[in-house]
Nucleic acid binder design. Structure first.
Lengths: 199, 199
DNA sequence: CCATTTACGAAACTGGAGTTGCGCAATTCA
DNA sequence: TGAATTGCGCAACTCCAGTTTCGTAAATGG
């Protein structure tokens, strides 16, 4: 069925998301101003609010788009695959800067996004679903490694991935400690090497 | 040295913190309104702002007070000690409810607190210091267990505690999965039992 | 062509955090 | 006692995210 009234300007979505992403990454969550996005995109605020009912929705849409290319791959080497995937998550976390702290931690923006998901039930459902999918894929990766004998037969996969992903978020948001490649490898070693089957 | 002018009403701090804690736990971060706290405490807003320069500072002070009695103890049984301590952390995380979601996750408030710490450099310094202390104590606990032979000699303690604490925060904030006693025990088992020295 | 439907833009409005100015109260020091 | 200092309450103010209203534009269907 063909939609009735005046069609939406399809260029607006793309342009707004691009501008919003730039603002979010450069200046953090509070630096993402609806007025400024509207002005830079050359549209009225109402046009933005028709597409995203609140600033929170726009911000989440921006982040979802940035995360879209975080792929998980199974090469048969569980250690390398985990390091690779956790690196992508870490890179995503490190990309966001807090407003006025270009060198600083991305903690603020990540925290704001968590808060946004809690403020709006629809965002919460959406993001939880996305993270559930990610979780399912990661658990399948671990499970496959367990089945083919790379990991202990009685391994409990769920808390294992919670620990890996959680350690990254914990450092970024809570302790402010760096999350670089060296740490990711150390983390995977700590969590995994002693889970490997013994020769 | 004796302070000069009119002394502060010491009852105000106590009363405000109690009221603010009730509001924060019941209605979440956004439900914590400065105007409402001032009204319920029977003081003017300026009196609050003289003590806490922003709502963020007040909220952080409330949480710090709630966490003050999270003690870490070393009984010589590393597994029990970790379960015990992580239970306290989990209880603190579970106490906070998001505004309008009494049954819901505490994710929102925790996220707001993270964001608050990022917004103000002074809060960030303070909370990072507090978490660094907590981290030091936990690492000492693990280290002691390692030295006395409960844990593997070549254990890397830092990522281990990141994993344990991180898994709790990750579930509360990101996936929304429950964090109850059963999970904490499962988590410690997953992270620790295979770190124990072999007989 | 004309009624209907939906999109758009401009501007005014709302609500809450945070700020400021001012008069008064309480305390110290000379 | 009196000047200086600091706390308090009241009220008006700024600022900005978000909302609402209304007039206009672009499309469809009869």
């Amino acid at each position: 069925m063909v939609p009735r009234g005046r069609p939406r300007d399809t260029q607006v979505d793309e342009r707004v998301l691009r501008i919003a992403a730039a603002l979010l990454l450069e200046r953090g969550y509070t630096g993402l101003s609806i007025d400024e996005v509207a002005e830079q995109a050359g549209v009225a605020k109402t046009t933005l609010y028709r597409r995203w009912p609140a600033k929170d929705h726009l911000a989440v849409a921006v982040v979802a788009r940035l995360q879209a290319d975080d792929e998980i791959t199974d090469t048969g080497d569980i250690r390398a695959d985990l390091v690779n995937y956790l690196e992508k998550i870490a890179a995503g976390l490190n990309r966001m800067r807090a407003a006025g702290h270009r060198e600083g931690p991305s903690a603020g923006t990540v925290g704001e996004l968590v808060a946004a998901a809690a403020r709006h039930e629809d965002i919460g459902r959406l993001t939880r679903k996305q993270y559930a999918e990610r979780n399912t894929l990661a658990l399948a990766l671990i499970e496959a490694a367990r089945v083919r004998g790379e990991l202990r037969a009685d391994l409990d996969a769920e808390p294992l991935f919670d620990q890996l992903a959680g350690a990254l978020y914990y450092r970024v948001m809570i302790t402010g400690a760096p999350v670089d490649r060296a740490y990711v490898e150390r983390l995977v070693s700590s969590a995994l090497e002693r889970n490997l089957t013994c020769p």
